[in-house]
Design a protein around this nucleic acid. Structure first.
Lengths: 205, 205, 205, 205
DNA sequence: TGTTAACCGAGACGGTACGTCACGTCTTACA
DNA sequence: TGTAAGACGTGACGTACCGTCTCGGTTAACA
């Protein structure tokens, strides 16, 4: 009551405020474990608490369960966006798809994702978290497509959302599920972009 | 005749042979639990043993762990193949894609699959099991595409394997990951087939 | 005052302290099972946990294994000491020996003891537990013998420890091992006391 | 009814007779395991069968359970009787007691015995087995005592059975139970013999 | 000389209990 | 009230043996 700050912001909950140090330590611990190659579903709350130097209760006060913690953790690691040259729609799309499908641990989100799918099927909140993670990348791709429409590289009546799925789906299943052993994952992004563009591009053909 | 019989048949392992009744009871128990809506990763060996009327050791004698049991179980449930009218490539491909992406539990394999992905990333044997499950469906699609090439519905230099990925990927990620909330899963199969065909079709355009 | 309190009391371990209710419930459960006639080696941790309304982990947090639990349990049941009349060394010794050898379940410790012997041969800690159980009774007998020495009932140079063994040994093996079918266990304590006293007594002879 | 042989001996069961090689192999396997220091209660039928190169059923066809097998096994190993000089009752008794109480594994029977006690309390047959093992040694001691009575070394009205217990009991409990840490097990046999003789001896005093 | 019945090894069977682990909750003392 | 620590009840894990039950294949006395 000392200052005038009382009117500023939310009413300020009573008691000791939550430590931001704990927040960060927890998220960092998860990310560390992930980075060490620990399989996401093999990460235990107990291990996270121990590594973060935090009590288990402190974790459960912030997240409902392990999965919620994991989504939150992967949301806190933004994969750096690839440089888009902007010279051609084709090159930009390929640049966006490449990190999804190329290396062994391309995008850290992709590593955790499979472990969360089954949980997502039961937990509505988790979908929201996932959407928050993928939406920015999806938007990047949308921007490229819309730019292509404006410049005439793509046909005007292109269904953008469908095209996103056409581009991402093949690369993603091949990476996550090793769907087809006869397909080379390394060259897949480019080939997918070409195949889709060839079909949907306006003057290209 | 004596010498000829030497080569006939497997040498027959010593000891009491494994009970085929147990095999079936175990697989059936897993399938039952799955059918009841139990999430695959929530299935416990103890529950399977209890329902199958079987000792836990009998399960562990056959499978190394829970995941191995699950792959084997889903391999034992062949989703019935959809009727292919054969009238057009487009219709047949849509018929093949529809069960993948449409309903809540379309193909039972699809229901278990997400739970196994993370295990598959560690266990090489499990990939083989998965391939055995999807390969037949992939082959069906290949047959349709090759028929289309022969009839001229599709261009002669079509890359069949790539086309499989282009068709299946979008439907699969939308179903398994609810990848894009702006896409309607119900109509997706047809739209994907059309979009891909439009691009890769020969005289169609 | 600040500095003085530093040395006061145990440092108090962090975290939730162990529940004394659990301690008691577990020990009571063991004792109950024993009292019901369950053979000590047939007692399972699972049964103890179930009866005590306690998780197995709670037991394993306190005791390393089943045997350690059992010794601890029998240590918590002090057989009531017999009334010593004090009129004569002979009567008091017989009174002390009688509960060891007489009935079917004379001293509860005697019932569990045989089951633990083999474990004791491997586990040094267990000997300590056993000593704690028998030492008080041994001391009672020592007191009687030393009183006898002071009163002149026993010779002055009596080897007290050896005499303890001479008195207890025969009764114990007859009870625990039914060592000799020609010996009547009921009358044995008195006869042993008489035989030993006759030899070691001073003026008695 | 054909021959007169009907009255002679057991009727000879039909079918293949039991292999004596198996009998020996099984007993030997138990004895081997015991000799290697395996604790008797830690011996498993499976281990015995494996070591004997025998099927488990072959064991169960002969013995009802593990304990019955163990008693039978220890009955098949007769500890060699010590040389009795015959010069004095004292020396002979001490010679008989010494192997019971001295070394770490004095008499192999003594090693198994503790593990069987609890089982013996439930199983009447097992007592019989135990008696068969100890009776010969008891008889040796009886012989010495009776010889002492005849020669006048011991009093004529000596209770032989009681004296057996007085001699054996203290040594046995000290060895099996490490009953009293203040007693030296090495010198115990002689001291017990002396103490008992001093009391029960006739002219000795 | 077959037949026959119980034996043999091997090992699978349904069970029970083991001791470990992680879950998500609860309970301390302290800040 | 938040926090670190750690105990709590729960329940599955994968292992080890239990004592029983098939298997295909001996092994001897009887017929």
């Amino acid at each position: 009551m000392i200052g005038v700050t009382a009117a500023a912001g939310p009413p300020r909950a009573p008691g000791r405020p939550r430590s931001t140090r704990a927040d960060e330590a927890i998220i960092d611990a998860v990310l560390d474990l992930l980075a060490e190659g620990t399989n996401a579903e093999a990460i235990s709350i107990e291990a996270v608490a121990a590594r973060a130097g935090v009590g288990k209760a402190t974790i459960y006060r912030r997240w409902a369960n392990k999965e919620a913690l994991l989504v939150d953790a992967i949301m806190n690691l933004k994969g750096q966006s690839p440089d888009l040259t902007g010279t051609s729609v084709r090159d930009d799309l390929a640049a966006l798809l490449r990190p999804v499908g190329r290396s062994r641990r391309p995008h850290p989100a992709a590593a955790v994702l499979p472990c969360l799918i089954s949980e997502m099927h039961r937990n509505e909140q988790m979908w929201a978290g996932y959407q928050q993670v993928v939406e920015p990348r999806r938007q990047l791709m949308r921007d490229v497509l819309e730019r292509g429409i404006r410049t005439g590289e793509l046909r005007a009546d292109l269904d953008v959302e469908l095209t996103l799925a056409l581009l991402t789906g093949p690369v993603l299943i091949q990476h996550e599920l090793r769907w087809n052993p006869r397909l080379d994952p390394a060259s897949l992004p480019e080939r997918v972009v070409d195949a889709v563009l060839e079909g949907i591009g306006g003057p290209a053909r």
